[in-house]
């Protein structure tokens, strides 16, 4: 699975995932604390600059942004029409979040899924004192990525089978066989992991 990553040869792409996520968090905090429209403006400028530096096609980025922006605009429109008062505050709030969504989209488009997953694993390592096992989290993330397409096929398959039997819109008829299949798959997959030497008692401290 390639994810939403868009490959370009740029300094933004080469930045480590941790730096990008850290930067995003920091900018989010700054934007939300700066009074008035300044935060939104600053984030917009930063977002546009990063977009250019990452050599991402603006058309594609705008397409990704269309849904949230249209929704925000729509909500804002209704708001302005109905309420009348306080629309400047609403406008600022919308602009702030539109800018933050732009920044976040830049991070997503320039960072490979696996780099992001690696970052999560390192962060889970920090949570070890709380009883989090980073090796298990890493295995579960990998298993999930592996099984999403398979489950997608399974959903389609079960739906088709039900349709063939004339059951068109009955969601219950979809989910019972789907769950039964998943629970059998779980048995097989557990056996396969253990047959290949996976031992859940391993702390995975060595990586």
């Amino acid at each position: 699975m390639l994810g939403l990553y868009l490959h370009r040869d740029s300094a933004v792409h080469r930045l480590p995932a941790g730096a990008k996520m850290g930067g995003l968090l920091l900018l989010t905090a700054v934007v939300l604390t700066l009074p008035g429209a300044w935060g939104a403006l600053a984030a917009m400028v930063a977002g546009a600059a990063l977009l250019a530096a990452a050599r991402l096609p603006p058309g594609r980025v705008l397409r990704d942004l269309r849904a949230p922006v249209v929704m925000l605009a729509l909500l804002f429109g209704i708001q302005a029409l109905l309420a009348g008062t306080g629309w400047q505050d609403a406008a600022i709030a919308v602009a702030r979040f539109a800018a933050l969504i732009l920044l976040a989209t830049v991070v997503t488009l320039t960072t490979r899924v696996m780099d992001m997953v690696d970052l999560f694993e390192r962060l889970f390592g920090l949570l070890r004192p709380l009883g989090v096992n980073p090796a298990k989290m890493a295995l579960m993330l990998a298993l999930t990525i592996r099984f999403v397409p398979l489950l997608g096929d399974l959903v389609r398959e079960v739906r088709m089978a039900q349709r063939a039997r004339g059951v068109e819109r009955n969601m219950a008829a979809l989910f019972v066989p789907l769950l039964v299949k998943i629970l059998t798959m779980a048995d097989d997959l557990t056996a396969a992991l253990e047959a290949r030497g996976y031992d859940p008692a391993d702390t995975g401290s060595q990586r």
Binding site: K136, L139, M140, L141, L143, T144, R146, F147, V148, P149, L150, L151, G152, D153, L154, V155, L178, I182, M185, A186, L189, T190, L193, P200
Partner: peptide, 13 residues
């Protein structure tokens, strides 16, 4: 582990 991953994958599916 397997059940968690499969249900997460089900959400994606």
């Amino acid at each position: 582990l397997v059940l968690c991953a499969l249900f997460a994958a089900l959400l994606g599916g």
